[in-house]
Amino acid sequence: MLRLPTQMFKHALILQRLPPPCNGNTTVKLVLRKMNSQRPADWPIGVATNAKDKEKITALGWFLLLIPATTFGLGCWQVKRKIWKEQLIKDLNEQLRMPPVELPDNLRDLDKMEYRLVKVRGHFLHDKEMRIGPRSLIRPDGVETQGGLFSQRDSGNGYLIITPFQLANRDDIILINRGWVSRKHVNPETRALGQNQTEVEVTAVVRKGESRPQFTPDHKGGDNYLYRDLPRMCSSTGAAPVFLDAVYNEQVAPHSPVGGQTRVTLRNDHLSYLITWFSLSAATSYLWYRQIVKRIPF
């Protein structure tokens, strides 16, 4: 309902105070003529304009549109990351099936050869043996055993045996993960037949060191490690910063370390990330359309 201006109320009061009409209502006509002349200037004419203003999207409304647009862009980026990570994992697994190559003369070249198979010749320094664990056994078929049950405590839970390896015809010493042993065979005396002192040729996978995982305590010293702490292992044994995982070999002595404990462990959580971003984009787009465009209250 339109609100009448103050001036109109004044004219209405004047009409009420006028004497009864006479002589053709000359006085009333003069008053009405004055009201009509002032009406365009005094009456509110912005009702239609206000309705259009309400339909306009403000600068703040357009700014809020950045939220669904940004989350949609992040979802598209995660799609690209997922494709890239899956291709990388595929390439690394293919490297594990490629023929082994000779160990390069410059050991620094191994920094760009992770997950490549190499051949090395030399002998193990068993007196400097170390272990990493506890670890589950990765069987030759790729299945990882789950230790912890009474029936599987010895067969599914153990340690990785890390032994310095003196290269033949070279002064370099490197570290080789010979493989997994159960808890009852951690002591070298329990697997004496596998402690070969002669020169051997080993096929192994190039690996890099690890950063300390979150919530993992630091090493307490000794020859037991919780992760591949390459700097500390090399410092205690005098080895070069080279770490290799021996491949699986059926022709080993009983109770010897089981090789083939390499697994491509690149995280690939991009599917969950892209679902999260696209869901946020859809939800915020709906809220923006409802609140900014349609102006529907909750």
Rank of each mutant, 00 (worst) to 15 (best):
P164M: 11
D172G: 13
P140G: 14
M35E: 05
I67Y: 08
A283V: 10
N177C: 08
R191I: 02
S279D: 02
S155K: 08
L30E: 06
Q261K: 11
S256D: 09
K52Y: 06
P100T: 14
L244H: 07
G222E: 02
S236Y: 01
L266R: 09
P44N: 14
G194W: 00
L287C: 04
F124H: 13
P134E: 15
R139K: 07
Q197W: 04
L137R: 15
R263Q: 11
D245Q: 15
R212T: 00
R212K: 04
E129R: 07
T58C: 12
A69W: 03
G179C: 08
T49V: 09
M233N: 02
I67A: 11
T58M: 14
K56H: 07
D154Q: 11
Y115D: 05
P213H: 02
K90S: 10
R212Y: 00
K220M: 01
D42E: 11
P241D: 02
R267V: 12
G133M: 03
Q146D: 13
W43E: 07
A51C: 08
V264L: 11
G259Q: 08
N187R: 04
T265K: 09
P134N: 06
K34F: 10
K112Y: 11
L4T: 06
A246I: 03
P254C: 12
R33A: 13
